[in-house]
Design a protein around this nucleic acid. Structure first.
Length: 618
RNA sequence: GGCCCCGUAGCUCAGCGGAUAGAGCAUUUGCCUUCUAAGCAAAUGGCCCCUGGUUCGAGUCCAGGCGGGGUCACCA
């Protein structure tokens, strides 16, 4: 039982005893006392005036006296207005610290026997990963780490869109213009290599389109179809898709390639496999650099035909209905979601059909109690529909489905647009933040005497910490502005600031040397009269498991990020104000070393949940 | 237009019904002969988008507006 639970139940009992009233639990829930007042936890007594018929201050006095008398962990109290501030005894805190100081697993909640599957990243294979994927990956990864810490068994999966017209464009461009070049022969990272051909296709297509616009055919179409209020330029912009599908030679070739692929044409399949493999190799390198991995990959080429049997079942069960043309629909109007096609009139699947099938297949593969889809908020409607249909189909896992939606990442200059070349590439971003860390490190010179590989390892950790923390600290649902300049900041509310707290501790612990022998920490138990900076730190540490739990429940890594920052901030304050190795007494020294060890532990675990590694020096 | 998300300091963000709304960046000023100054302390900076309502108490909950974004394909 936690101290807050203890205070809560004692408060309920006290109110019952003093005023004969049974209050709801939430009215007895203690909050953390604000820093400007003395105390650790606070009970608000305003709600009790109704039945106690006394002033809030009076109630607080009576309740405070009662609690301190009956709860041994409470030392004293004070009253400000109607606020009852409770002071937890030093012994409680020092006991708690002794329990966790050497416990590497502090913050790991007991196994709950439940499984959660988290799907994230899920890229297309026609171009490299970009900043949007980075936010997705960081969210998905930290979410899975947090769920594990909260006691779940976690499976990390992604669904790779390896088929369709987009990859065919890359394939066609390579075939026509590639001259058998390879990533090796050109020295290009292999996913970028494939992406370059996608871009090349778009260029060639634009050239073709431009030429067509000036041709007699183009001018004739313009004359026939342009609307009165449309400029020539605007018309051709709007007409692009139609041109691609009905007039373009390149478009025709790309679509033919897709048909060949669907017909399992051996040479097309071979080319497809070869180019996709290049992309996968490139992706793996990026995943590795970001420090993430997956347990299982699903490929749309293997799942895109799934879901048809579900449609049949749904029809039989009356969840779906068939129109005269043979298309199958779900009527979700009573859930405020409109009608939705689940199968085309020609009997082929649509996007959501595939998702229905994939959901079922994965349930059979893994049997998850919860499935979390990390997908940007532009697909909110899609997931509402998907979940609603699965619910109506009576799927056993329907109640555990969750869409972890997140806002798009904008640049200070506005939205990222591939057309305008403003997309921030993931690999570039990673090398930039590390380069920035290298520059800053040169000026400091702290790690100059280490070997080159050791230095590079540290710089990588610092750079990635800056990048990852900058992204993960923002509430997922918020659209965020990503300023590359700020993402490499190493000071203030940043990853490196937190790493620095850890590094300072490690430095002190190294200097303390043999005094870290297990026995010597017994001295810490003799320490009393905790300083405010020490109390603040311990109280923060105490909050860690609860923070892990709420972050897991809310699927919100930013709560862990903010917690780590607060803890580091409190540590820096403590470190500046109080001497550790030259503490006033041996007891104080032992206690502070123990406190340092515990803080280091929690910082390492907490940042680990965000996928951020800690260096030993910086 | 229907539905969903967002609106807090110049900028980027916390705040999850309680006290005088907090951090970081930016600007200004102190603090390294002592455990790593990637730090600490201080100053400056706010019609918490607006209007009503619920409540002892609202940035927080509810309703209606306003502003920004997303989405409403037999695309994925």
């Amino acid at each position: 039982m936690t101290i807050t639970d203890l205070i809560q139940s004692a408060t309920i009992a006290a109110i019952q005893e003093l005023y004969g009233e049974t209050i709801p639990a939430e009215q007895a829930a203690p909050t953390v006392t604000r820093k400007e007042f003395e105390g650790d936890y606070t009970i608000v007594t305003f709600p009790f005036t109704r039945f106690a018929k006394k002033k809030p201050g009076e109630i607080a006095e009576e309740l405070g006296a009662h609690l301190v008398k009956n709860v041994p962990q409470l030392d004293r109290f004070n009253v400000v207005q109607g606020f009852l501030n409770l002071v937890v005894s030093d012994v409680f805190w020092t006991d708690f610290l002794a329990q966790i100081a050497d416990n590497q697993d502090f913050g790991q909640l007991p196994k709950n026997g439940k499984k959660v599957m988290i799907e994230f990243c899920s890229p297309n294979t026609n171009k490299p990963l970009h900043l949007g994927h980075v936010r997705n990956i960081l969210l998905g990864w930290s979410c899975s780490q947090i769920c594990e810490a909260a006691g779940y068994e976690v499976k990390k999966v992604q669904v790779i869109n390896d088929r369709g017209i987009a990859i065919c464009k890359s394939m066609l461009a390579w075939q026509k213009f590639g001259n058998s070049a390879t990533p090796e022969s050109t020295g290009t990272k292999s996913d970028h290599f494939v992406g370059d051909y996608y871009v090349l296709f778009e260029q060639k297509f634009q050239e073709e389109y431009k030429a067509w616009q000036a041709s007699a055919d183009g001018q004739q179409i313009l004359g026939e179809k342009r609307k009165a209020d449309q400029s020539d330029e605007q018309f051709f912009k709007d007409f692009k898709n139609t041109y691609f599908n009905e007039y373009s030679l390149l478009g025709k070739e790309a679509r033919e390639m897709l048909l060949l692929w669907e017909a399992h044409d051996p040479s097309t399949i071979a080319l497809w496999k070869r180019m996709n493999q290049w992309v996968y190799d490139g992706f793996e390198e990026t995943f590795h650099n970001l420090g993430v991995s997956f347990d299982k990959y699903y490929y749309e080429s293997e799942t895109y035909l799934l879901g048809k049997d579900i449609v049949e079942q749904g029809l039989a069960a009356g969840v779906f209905y068939k129109k005269e043309d043979g298309s199958v629909w779900a009527d979700l109007t009573d859930a405020k979601l409109d009608h939705k096609v689940v199968m085309r009139s020609d009997g082929t699947s649509v996007y959501i059909t595939q998702d229905l099938g994939t959901a079922q297949m994965r349930y059979h593969d893994f049997g998850a109690d919860k499935v979390v889809y990390v997908v940007a908020d532009e697909q909110n409607y899609h997931f509402q529909v998907l979940f609603e249909i699965l619910k109506r189909l009576g799927e056993p896992y329907a109640a555990g489905l969750h869409h972890l939606n997140y806002g798009m990442v904008d640049l200070p200059t506005g939205k990222m647009k591939s057309r305008e070349g403003t997309v921030v590439d993931a690999d570039d971003l990673i090398s930039e933040v590390i380069a920035e860390a290298r520059e800053a490190s040169k000026e400091r010179g702290e790690i100059a005497e280490l070997t080159k590989p050791e230095q590079e390892d540290i710089l990588r950790k610092i750079g990635l910490a800056a990048l990852k923390f900058h992204i993960i600290k923002v509430t997922p649902q918020k659209r965020m502005v990503f300023d590359p300049k700020e993402s490499v900041d190493l000071q203030g509310q940043t990853g490196p600031h937190i790493q620095y707290a850890y590094v300072r501790i490690k430095s002190v612990l190294r200097k303390a040397g043999e005094q870290l022998a297990v026995g010597s920490w017994q001295l810490a138990a003799g320490y009393s009269n905790l300083q405010p900076q020490e109390r603040e730190l311990i109280a923060q540490l105490y909050r860690f498991p609860a923070t892990v739990e709420t972050a897991a429940n809310n699927y919100d890594p930013s709560e862990i990020a903010n917690y780590c920052y607060d803890l580091a901030k409190a540590f820096h304050r403590f470190f500046t104000d109080l001497s550790i190795l030259k503490a006033e007494t041996e007891e104080a020294k032992a206690f502070r070393l123990q406190l340092c060890a515990a803080v280091a532990n929690v910082l390492k675990t907490g940042m680990g949940l965000l996928g951020i590694e800690m260096p030993e020096r910086m």
